[in-house]
Design a protein around this nucleic acid. Structure first.
Lengths: 335, 335
DNA sequence: CTGAAAGCGCTTACAG
DNA sequence: CTGAAAGCGCTTACAG
């Protein structure tokens, strides 16, 4: 069907022109007569020629591949977040003639990323999260690979695209305070994830703003397993906590399970709010108040930014994307 | 740090040998003196030379990339399954000097896959699921790209690696029957997924085997949303169904939510079993009886098989991997 | 055991 | 506007 192994040379010979001319007709670079261009393009169209991107890459010292760095930790690998943003990245890369190559890294092993880089298989990279002491990020910086990070970091050498987690958490907390809730607890996981500390700051911002910091708020970080959640929930119930804000949907699921087991009604006896409303929380009853981020768009923006960098354009150091606080049944409306 | 742009030519010149010799020392192909080989290898080691895989690829007509075809449908994109098997694929590819390039496809758009193929960016592909009328599969076949499918299909031109879903479902059902449960319902999603019909067959196998097919079993396929689940659960409760078997963890989550809302106790009033115990179900209370598949291993096997095909080896048409039925609190033990 | 040379399929100064 | 030629960094018959 396709004339698979058709080369630029074949076309040149067939049309009685030079390879240079064919190349120019295809790339659109360099002067070329309208006549000849059309002739070449028509031939190509008719014979389903498609250029060998590898050869093109060798000549131009490019790969037309973007590296996507994904966490390969066993816990994290299941979060829908990464696959969703992959969709955004993949689509925009594709639309610009690039492909996406994945590198799965763990805390103590970034060899896949190293291979992709030393083998010159990627033109740039996208980091899908930021950690406090980020090995892949360090590596990319010292290897001089253009990259953008999805997430935030203090290092202002790195181009960042992130949702505004701090404002998001502030706004959510503020709404809860506005509803008259005072005794709020925040539960989060890994503290070394920059996003965790950003949310924590937003939480505190809200209390500051309203001058209602009465010591009744509580925070628990580095909560990772169900057992720990049980214990914390127990403690919070004793302390008459009115609302628990969970930093991710997985944690929220744990909290809901614990409450269910203890026969504590939501929101009657305790209110619940969360981040991300992915399928993990979808269809929960009662519906969960949470913050929605457009993760696919995050991927899209990150990829667009990287592509602009590869084109030699100047890009903004930091792009902040929006969010949407969705109040639902797990928290009580007033009035 | 790394002497990035070191080429085979530089090394040859530096060492006073030919490029041919350097190439041979690296590849291990062709006769070469032990002395010279060591000399070259030492130099390479010391100067951190790493070959340009793109150039190598052009010369050998290879890319050292494997295409991984992932569903880009909005619903499916969140299932942890795909990311987990990506881990297995990615690791083994990496261990063999290959990288993984992703192509996200939907029912009506396989352009990313087409690009990867026509641009000659991949040496082979892995299909992460099989459908009844599978566009990506058809395309790969007619494009003559070596590939292996994770999942099953009737088409015996395709190399398949799959868990034994049929036996798994038979065994689970059989255990339930052995516990004296007779009135069992099966709920599944998309019927065009081959895996759905395989499980259905396993379900029926179990009834056949025990000659207890009394018409009390029921099956519901193509169930995809929470609303539909509500309705079905209602009907099943009326019919005194004793146990609901869910074909995936997402559906199971929906069923549990519905039951919770209706204040129906599990397993006291109705029993529940599911497939896959991913994080979606982890930490649920009560713990859910389910079938465990080693999804990462599935990825590993699929990738190994593909690599063997690329090496020109003969591979088995069909590899069936195991499963593990885990009886938990959501179904009652007898005795 | 080693090397000169052609080739993989493109791009791109340089001339005309 | 068009082309001959060199080059991207490797591999691989073919000779020696």
């Amino acid at each position: 069907m396709d004339d698979k192994n058709l080369t630029i040379g074949d076309i040149a010979q067939e049309l009685g022109v030079s390879k240079t001319t064919v190349s120019r007709a295809i790339s659109g670079k360099g002067r070329i007569g309208e006549q000849t261009r059309k002739k070449v393009l028509d031939y190509i169209e008719e014979h389903h020629y498609s250029p060998n991107v590898i050869a093109k890459g060798l000549a131009q010292n490019k790969t037309f591949n973007l590296g996507m760095v994904l966490p390969g930790d066993y816990n994290v690998v299941e979060l829908p977040f990464f696959q969703k943003c992959m969709l955004g990245v993949s689509r925009t890369a594709s639309a610009h003639g690039y492909d996406v190559l994945i590198s799965m890294v763990t805390a103590d092993n970034i060899s896949q990323l190293e291979r992709a880089v030393t083998n010159r298989k990627i033109d740039g990279a996208i980091l899908t999260r930021t950690l406090a002491d980020d090995a892949p990020m360090k590596y990319l910086i010292e290897s001089d690979v253009p990259f953008v990070a999805m997430g935030s970091t203090d290092d202002d050498r790195v181009v960042q695209v992130d949702n505004d987690h701090r404002s998001a958490c502030r706004e959510l907390t503020d709404k809860l305070l506005a509803h008259g809730i005072r005794n709020i607890a925040l539960i989060g996981s890994d503290e070394t994830h920059i996003v965790t500390s950003n949310r924590l700051r937003g939480f505190e911002d809200a209390f500051m703003q309203r001058k209602e910091w009465d010591g009744s708020r509580q925070t628990f970080l580095n909560v990772s397993d169900g057992g720990r959640v049980d214990e914390i929930v127990e403690r919070l119930l004793e302390k008459k906590t009115e609302c628990i804000v969970c930093m991710d949907d997985f944690l929220c699921g744990c909290v809901l399970n614990t409450l269910q087991q203890k026969q504590i009604a939501v929101p009657a006896q305790i209110q619940i709010a969360s981040f991300y409303d992915s399928t993990v929380l979808a269809n929960r009853i009662p519906s969960i108040t949470s913050i929605r981020f457009d993760v696919e768009e995050l991927g899209t923006k990150a990829c667009e930014t990287l592509l602009r960098m590869l084109d030699g354009e100047e890009v903004e150091r930091r792009t902040l994307l929006g969010y949407e606080v969705r109040m639902r049944k797990s928290t009580r409306e007033i009035g």
